[in-house]
Design a binder for these strands. Structure first.
Lengths: 364, 364
DNA sequence: TGACGTAGCTAAATCCATTTAGCATCAGTC
DNA sequence: GACTGATGCTAAATGGATTTAGCTACGTCA
């Protein structure tokens, strides 16, 4: 029979129930209670009545086993255990986090020996409220973590908090931490250049209301580059969220208000796919009427119709830097670099290329 | 200064280093070592020299703090802590797992009180090798878990293992466990019906080489339904993996070998998007030449071109059942149901609808 | 000289669950 | 009646880190 746990009916703030209370309650020793709750009652020859009695008492009192106690006791002293985690906000693009976990797990699989074990997990916090996540400030949860997809509030919290375990920050720069991030400005600048080279006169940018460090950097660099090259301001479309419907709605709203664009940079994949829908529905051809540039962090971009030009997607490369960095910190190396900049690969695909070809055709 | 941890250079199987060894090594008491390693040396008035000495010894000996010990000590006896996890294979569609975590976190946010805390995480195992995941069989890691995306090998392992904590299985039926799953046969049967109603004479099915319980069920029901209704066997295309390129390759290989189809059921989203690519590239129109049905577990399906008809996507609904079920088990309720069947919603979109219209047009 | 303070450290208790060795008790056997 | 064996339970040690109360040695001041 599987073990089950109870929760107290009245939620006063009495101390949590331990096996000692149960023992006292049923008038037996903690040893007996432990044997029963660990399902060892058969080999320990505990009477069937006693088993029932203890199980009932546990349920009634709302016993919740203390895993720390169990683990401490179960600990084989020859193995050292590392608890690693990837901390990300719920609003994150999961595939990217998945990549990171994958890379971390690969590293861990290699490093695992008979006396060194690793546990890796993804844990999530509400964007902007990392400080509220239970355990971030405690030294008793993680041996090391990779933190990603934070908002400025989180960055601010981190900057002043100094977590009591090794940390690698993925995707932004926070003073006092080891950071791995996109080379600043690269994505925004390059996507602006791709659109301009494709002959766009009215480039625009689409982003979500919540700006992370990364998306904010992309946005800023895009605007600056367009301004420098054309002397004009690009249109800025803001969507309520990062999901396709919201991207589609933002583009639609822009057109309804009489906005014009012939080139669009979407700061995330999912916004690009939303934009595609509105552009097509409104009869605009990609890239003939509107060229589109997005980011290629997942493998979908190539399968858009037409395939999407991507000027980002450094996630792979960033993760490849971040994981070894974390291990160096775990090993206690002092010379770990404070900052690693990664230049993302660029894939020009039909969503801009055809138009470039047309441009050349017209000119030539 | 951040605390750092070392790993021994020689990996003999000596017992892991504790603060007692460090204490002995530097000729001081464990109390002093602890104060230093917990960065409490200032308020504990430890001499600067001593601090350095201890830090060096810790690094040299390869000290790795035992989190179980720390947590046990740090434990505030008024709070009970639940450690919950979602266990999934690496090969899983992450967005679905994300949905599950989201739902779990929402439940946890509600249940959290000043004396009940929850920690939730996603942990991954290599598909088919759940048994090798450290800690699954131990009673000292989780208070409860949701397991999903297992392969038959994993199911078999689970069926005989009886994990020592409450478990909810998502997406398949395993004897002895609480399971939440798609109503059997529904997806396969219904997608076959949709294709046949759209007038397809040569329906086919596309799946990955690795079949989970869910995909295997979809496949089987599809084949059976087609056989029953038409008396013929549907073509079965097998791709090497679940990613779009592999789906595209499988469909291409089928055509190269002279295969014919006018309706396709892809058992996952990502295979459908790959199939789209090959179909379009080979000049086939969707749904005029080939109608396509897929699953709609993520929000992308609506943004395919043309929008994809989906006959699945019960993930939301399944998660909505699984989470409360897990909490009932945590609470020790005996009457928790063993099995919850969820009927997925069906969305007919252009990838089949247009063709149905054409059918009616031709007939009428 | 003695009272008092302080810097620097330690002994011992504590957190919770598990396990081993062993103590009673009782039934059955020669 | 002494012995054996099984049954049902308990005392006490253990795992690793932290913290509190307190000890020692040295310096300061009246």
């Amino acid at each position: 029979m599987r073990q089950t746990f109870g929760v107290p009916s009245k939620s006063g703030s009495k101390p949590a129930v331990t096996i000692y209370e149960i023992a006292e309650h049923v008038g037996m020793s903690p040893a007996t209670v432990s044997s029963v709750l660990a399902n060892r009652h058969v080999e320990r020859r505990i009477a069937a009545d006693t088993v029932l009695l203890i199980r009932e008492a546990a349920a009634e009192l709302g016993y919740v086993p203390n895993m720390a106690g169990r683990r401490l006791r179960a600990h084989k002293s020859a193995t050292r255990q590392f608890d690693l985690a990837i901390l990300t906000s719920f609003q994150a693009p999961l595939p990217l986090v998945g990549q990171a976990l994958h890379a971390l797990q690969r590293a861990v699989d290699v490093q695992t020996t008979k006396d060194t074990r690793y546990a890796v997990a993804i844990e999530m916090f509400h964007a902007g409220r990392l400080r509220e996540k239970p355990g971030v400030l405690d030294a008793d949860r993680y041996h090391g973590v990779i933190i990603t997809n934070t908002l400025p509030e989180d960055d601010q919290f981190l900057a002043q908090a100094k977590l009591p375990y090794p940390v690698v920050i993925l995707g932004r720069r926070i003073p006092g931490y080891c950071c791995v991030l996109e080379a600043p400005d690269f994505v925004g600048r390059h996507s602006a250049e791709v659109l301009l080279e494709a002959g766009c006169r009215e480039p625009a940018v689409l982003h979500g209301r919540l700006l992370t460090h990364t998306t904010s950097d992309r946005l800023g660099a895009f605007i600056r580059t367009v301004r420098e090259r054309t002397g004009r301001e690009p249109a800025v479309l803001v969507s309520d969220g990062l999901q396709p419907p919201q991207g589609a709605a933002a583009v639609e709203a822009f057109f309804v208000q009489g906005g014009k664009l012939d080139g669009l940079f979407a700061v995330t994949d999912s916004l690009a796919i939303g934009a595609y829908q509105t552009l097509k529905r409104s009869g605009r051809q990609i890239p003939h009427d509107v060229a589109v540039v997005g980011v290629g962090d997942n493998e979908m971009a190539e399968y858009f119709d037409p395939p999407l030009t991507t000027v980002a997607g450094a996630n792979d490369a960033m993760v490849a830097e971040a994981v070894p960095l974390l291990f160096r910190m775990l090993r206690g190396e002092r010379d770990a670099p404070r900052e690693v900049l990664v230049v993302p690969p660029v894939f020009e695909r039909e969503s801009t290329l055809k138009r470039k070809a047309e441009q050349r055709g017209e000119r030539g």
